[in-house]
Design a protein around this nucleic acid. Structure first.
Lengths: 315, 315
DNA sequence: TATAATAGTGACATAACATGTCACTGTTAA
DNA sequence: TTAACAGTGACATGTTATGTCACTATTATA
C-alpha cells in the first residue's frame, strides 16, 4: 500500500478507534513501529489532534475536533456548499457559526480566480426574504446533540410569564416561521412538550435521570403518537384555486391538501382542540379563498374573530 | 517542493489558467517536462478533467467541472455541511440536487463509526416545518448563473392568465414563503419585474442583446433604486407586544420594525401603491395585534376587506 | 511542403524519500 | 522491579520520483 493511502486509512482508523497503541497499528498496517511513529507525526502536522501517554495503559488518543481524510470537491460542489451555508444562515440562526467561518476559510485557500468571484457574487445574488431577526440561539447545538444522543438535559426555560427549570429529553429540533422549536419529553410534567429554543436560557446534561426510550419517536412520526390521548377535531376547509396555491407553501404534518382537477381543493385532517384559535386566525387570513365546513367549533371561533375585527375597524 | 505540494498547487494553477502548455508549467515549477507530464497524468487519474491537443496553439485545457485540491475538514465541519444541505433541501427546492448526492457520497466514504451515525440520526432529528411542496424548479440554477454572470436570457413565462416570451437580465434570486423569485430587468416592458421561478418554463442565453449595467444593483439595495419612480405611501402601523413578536419573523426590506421598551412597537417605511391589497390582507391577519394609523388608503382598503369577510361568514 | 510548436513514450541513471532494524532513552502503573 | 508503553538516532536497503535523452506523432502556418 502506498504511503498516501496508508495515511488516509490511518486517519479513518484512529478516528474510529479513539485509543490505540503504536504496536497495534504496526500490526494492522503490516509495517514497522518506526514507520507508524513517523506516520503519526505526519498526521499531527496535518492537523489530526493526537495525544500520547507512556506507560502501561498508555498509548495514543485522538482528541475532539477530529479531522477527516482530505476530500477533493468539484467547483460545483464547492459552490453548492457555499450556497446552502450562506442561504440557510440568512434564513435562520444555525448552530454552526464557527464551522461556517472555518469552512469558508478552507475553501478560499483552495479557490482561485473565476470560481472565487462566482462565490463572492453569489452572496449578493441570493436572498431569503422570510428571514427572522438574526438572533443567535445559544443552546441550539447542545439541544441537537442531546436529541441525537438521546441525553436527558436540565434546562432553564423563560416563557412570557414565568421562569422554570425542567428536566427534558429532546426528540429533535425544527424550524417554523423563523423560530426553532424543540419537542421533548418533559420529566416534570411527565408528558411531551414543545419548547421554543430561544427561550431556553441554560442547558446542562443531566446524567442522573435515566433516559426513556424514544427511539421509535422522531420528528416525522411524533404527531400521530403524541396526539393519541388528546381531544381532536376533524377538519374540512374548501379552498379556491388561489387558496390552493397559497396553502401549498404551508405544510403541517396533520393537515393534508387535496387538489381537484379544476385547481380548487380542500384541506382535511385533524387538529387538537387547543389549536382552534390558531386555525381560526389562519384560515381567516385566507379571506374568500378558504371556506370552513367542519368542525362547527372552528366556524364558531372564526365568527367571534370577525366580530373582534369589526369592533376594531368601527364599521 | 514536495511532490504532494506541487500537485496541489498545480491543481490550483491549471484551474486558474484554463489553458497552458507543458513547457510553461515545467518553467513555473522548476521541474522537467517529463515530470510535468507524469504529474498531469496523475491529476487526470485524480479526476481533474484535462484535455490536450498537439500542434502549434495546442496545449492543455481544463474542462468544466474542475476539481479543487483535497481539503481536510473536521468532523464538526462535515456535520455542519450535512446539516445545512439537508435542512435547506427540506425547506425549499435548491438548484444543487446532483451536487448534494455527490457531496454526500464523498463524505460517506471518509466517515466511519460514530460520526457517521451522528449524521444519519441528524436526518430524523432536524426538520423544517414551513416547507413548501417539494416541486423541483428546473431552471433555478441557470437563473442564478445568469444573475452572477450578468447574462441576458430569453425565458418563456407562464403566469396564471397567459404565456409570454421575454428577454430579461436577472438581478438575483430570492426565496419567500417557499417560492423562488427572480427580480430582473425586462427588455420587453423596459422596466424591472419580479418573476416567480416555477413559472419560468424555458431559459436560453441570449447573446444578441447587450446586457445593461446592473452592477450597482443587487438584492440588498434594489428596492430603493427600483421604487424611485413609483407612487408610494408612508406607512405607520402600531403593534402590540404580541404583534411585535409576530412581525419579527417577517422581514421586508422596505418596512422597518421599531420596538419600544414596553415590548410594543410600530412599523414604518414606504410601500408602493400596487401593494396596498397585500398590505391590507397582511395586517388584517394580525387582528387586534396591529392597528393601522397611516395611510388612509390602506385603512380604507382594510375596511373593505372586513366587509367582504362579513358577507362570507353571514353575521 | 518544410518547419516549428506542441503532446507523448520508453529506457536508464540518479537523486530523493520511505522503510526496516537495532540499540538505545525515558516514563509510569502495577 | 518489571513490563508496557512512547520516542530517537543512525544506518542500510528498498521504493519512488526525477531528469535526460532520443525518439514518435500531430498540426498550424509560413
Amino acid at each position: 500500500m502506498s504511503k498516501a493511502k496508508r495515511l488516509n486509512e490511518m486517519i479513518m482508523m484512529v478516528n474510529r478507534k479513539r485509543r490505540f497503541t503504536v504496536a497495534e497499528l504496526a500490526q494492522e498496517f503490516q509495517v514497522s513501529r518506526r514507520t507508524i511513529l513517523r506516520d503519526l507525526q505526519e498526521l499531527s502536522e496535518m492537523g489530526v489532534p493526537l495525544y500520547s501517554e507512556v506507560g502501561p495503559h498508555g498509548g495514543y488518543q485522538v482528541l475532539k475536533e477530529r479531522i477527516l481524510p482530505p476530500i477533493a470537491f468539484s467547483e460545483d460542489e464547492a459552490a453548492a456548499i457555499f450556497f446552502v451555508l450562506h442561504a440557510l444562515r440568512q434564513y435562520i440562526s444555525v448552530p454552526f457559526d464557527a464551522e461556517y467561518e472555518s469552512i469558508k476559510k478552507k475553501f478560499y485557500l483552495n479557490l482561485t480566480g473565476s470560481i472565487r468571484d462566482t462565490i463572492d457574487h453569489m452572496k449578493d445574488r441570493v436572498d431569503f426574504m422570510t428571514t427572522a431577526q438574526q438572533e443567535v440561539i445559544p443552546h441550539l447545538k447542545e439541544l441537537l446533540e442531546a436529541a441525537i444522543h438521546q441525553d436527558v438535559i436540565t434546562i432553564q426555560y423563560e416563557s412570557k410569564t414565568k421562569k422554570s427549570e425542567r428536566n427534558i429529553q429532546p426528540i429533535g429540533i425544527y424550524a417554523q416561521e423563523g423560530n426553532w422549536y424543540c419537542p421533548s419529553y418533559c420529566f416534570v410534567s411527565q408528558d411531551y412538550r414543545v419548547f421554543r429554543c430561544d427561550r431556553i436560557k441554560r442547558v446542562e446534561i443531566n446524567d442522573k435521570i435515566e433516559p426513556i426510550d424514544l427511539s421509535h419517536i422522531h420528528l416525522k412520526n411524533r404527531f400521530s403518537i403524541l396526539n393519541e390521548n388528546k381531544e381532536t377535531y376533524d377538519i374540512h376547509v374548501e379552498l379556491t384555486a388561489r387558496g390552493v396555491e397559497r396553502f401549498k407553501s404551508v405544510s403541517w404534518p396533520v393537515l393534508v391538501l387535496n387538489k381537484r382537477d379544476d385547481g380548487t381543493g380542500y384541506v382535511s385532517g385533524t387538529f387538537t382542540k387547543q389549536d382552534t384559535d390558531f386555525m381560526a386566525e389562519f384560515f381567516l387570513s385566507y379571506h374568500k379563498e378558504a371556506r370552513i365546513l367542519k368542525p362547527e367549533e372552528l366556524i364558531q371561533r372564526t365568527k367571534e374573530k370577525v366580530n373582534e375585527l369589526l369592533k376594531q375597524y368601527e364599521l
